[in-house]
Amino acid sequence: MRVFIFPADSLRAAIAACLICLGSVTLAEDWTPLNKDGIHDPRSPAIKQLQEPAAALSKLIPDTAGNMVRWVQALEKGEINPRASIRPDTKIRVYDSDVLLNLKGGMPIVRFPHRQHTLWLDCVNCHDHLFKAETGATKFSMLKILEGEQCGVCHGAVSFPLTECFRCHSVARPGQAPKPSLPIAIPAGAVPPK
């Protein structure tokens, strides 16, 4: 009877195959085609006419989460040039000012950059119904944000997802490591405690 042994170089071969596969599949699987995205009806005549996400998004500066696109960078570098209005008399307001939030919490301080947000949005989209214009007047809550309120109106829906903690909590407190060793992303399928 033969003894079943996996010698070391076989193991290396397996690991190499695994890595090669990871690398090759990444590109192909980043962009789910419309007929497999879970919401489009594969029998709809639209499938043959609508632009596939990969055709538009794979050309833009890549990200590691959400849409897999760095939208602000794509805009700043001119990869895309989205119109700011469709009516000639519309006022465009870009405001360049950072606000520091979460000054007393345990997580790193939040730096909210107005400029990047007003490249996309107008003041009235957030002020004053989501956030009061006066700094410190709005009480923030991660629970509300996770429920789709406050920052969560966009983040977690169309802008980078809420699992990217340190993109907002980006300013270390005195004596705090630049990036605390917290999980970067909550594992998919995780169930919150009852």
Binding site: A13, A14, C18, C21, T32
Partner: peptide, 24 residues
């Protein structure tokens, strides 16, 4: 055999991890 197992693991893991979310 190991190479096939490796390929299988590699492909399934990646499909779950790095898929774009469109927010449609």
């Amino acid at each position: 055999l190991l190479a096939v197992i490796g390929l299988a693991i590699g492909s399934t893991v990646q499909i779950d991890e790095a898929r774009a979310e469109y927010g449609d």
